[in-house]
């Protein structure tokens, strides 16, 4: 019997949605997911993980290369920098800064952007015009410039970087959410909710937000990589998180002058940035394909 031959076929016929979900799960990008989970874990327990205080200076062991190279020693598996600080410890601590900045900026940017996007899309009219033109202005404004100005005027800090990222991120979120809200609010189920006597707040929370949340998750995951890169760039330029706090961007900058003799100082944190950003982008692509295939263009 056909059913007996393939028990899975019967199950798929009964639960087509479950079967589809399983097919997507099987394409889960395991390597990027592993990198993401590992970095999150490292960021959380960085204090327990670091072999040395990442800010401790130790001139005796300055400019040691990573282990496989001549002069490398197992005490410092990834080598040391100009001041003899352990690069492994600094990369581990830098993970916390990079992910922390990205998480704070995304939280702030997505909350503000979603709220404004919903108001603009749902209410329309002059509110929409004001919110969206402001968003356009923020998107057009060079973020690096804002960061440099802020760094000069109020001094560089963790929260300045978060603020600069959020200033750009909210506009991206507002734009996406607004367009989703507009396409959603014209669907018949919203009209039917109004026929049944629902008010604006009810419709936003029960009909519009649940239909926008997927796109929000997708945009969030895709923006993590961007936020990490921008934080690293700002710090690299000296407009980000000030030394001696270990950050990936800052480490790349510190090693820049010695690339010919001590390449590892810049290269290793650079690799860390690359691997993590790659992982988030690949994972974000997968999340987008699963949750919201029509968002291919963001």
């Amino acid at each position: 019997m056909a059913v007996g031959a393939d028990p899975g076929a019967a199950r798929r016929a009964v639960f087509p949605a479950a079967a589809r979900m399983w097919a997507r799960l099987r394409r889960l990008p395991l390597l990027p997911l592993a990198v993401i989970l590992l970095t999150i874990l490292v960021a959380v327990i960085a204090d327990q993980l670091v072999p040395y205080d990442p800010e401790r200076i130790n001139p005796r062991y300055a400019e040691r290369p990573p282990v496989p190279f001549a002069g490398g020693m197992w005490e410092f598996p990834l080598g040391t920098d100009r001041l003899g600080r352990d690069i492994l410890s600094r990369i581990i601590m830098g993970t916390r800064i990079s992910l922390g900045v990205a998480a704070c900026a995304l939280l702030l940017g997505s909350l503000v952007g979603t709220a404004l996007g919903i108001v603009a899309g749902y209410r329309g009219g002059w509110i929409d015009v004001i919110v969206m033109r402001t968003a356009d202005a923020f998107l057009a404004f060079p973020g690096i410039l804002i960061a440099l100005v802020l760094a000069v005027t109020i001094g560089p800090s963790f929260w300045v970087v978060v603020a600069v990222l959020a200033l750009i991120l909210w506009a991206r979120f507002a734009r996406l959410v607004r367009s989703e809200v507009i396409s959603c609010k014209n669907r018949d189920f919203v009209a039917l909710a109004r026929v049944a006597g629902a008010g604006g707040t009810y419709i936003v929370f029960h009909h519009i937000l649940p239909n926008v949340i997927n796109s929000l998750v997708v945009l969030c995951t895709l923006q993590v990589g961007w936020a990490i890169i921008v934080e690293a760039s700002l710090t690299f330029l000296g407009a980000g998180i000030p030394p001696p706090t270990p950050t990936w961007g800052g480490m790349v900058a510190e090693g820049l002058n010695y690339v010919e003799t001590a390449w590892w100082i810049s290269l290793l944190p650079g690799l860390a940035i690359m691997i993590v950003v790659f992982a988030y982008n690949l994972f974000g692509d997968w999340v987008r394909d699963v949750l919201d295939p029509h968002l291919r263009n963001i």
Binding site: R187, D188, F189, L192, V195, A196, G197, P210
Partner: peptide, 22 residues
Amino acid sequence: RRYRASVQAVFQDPWSSLNPRM
């Protein structure tokens, strides 16, 4: 309120008239 409760609707497109998340 009485009117809204007394008048209901069915629309053309059953793919648009049911909230996919409910």
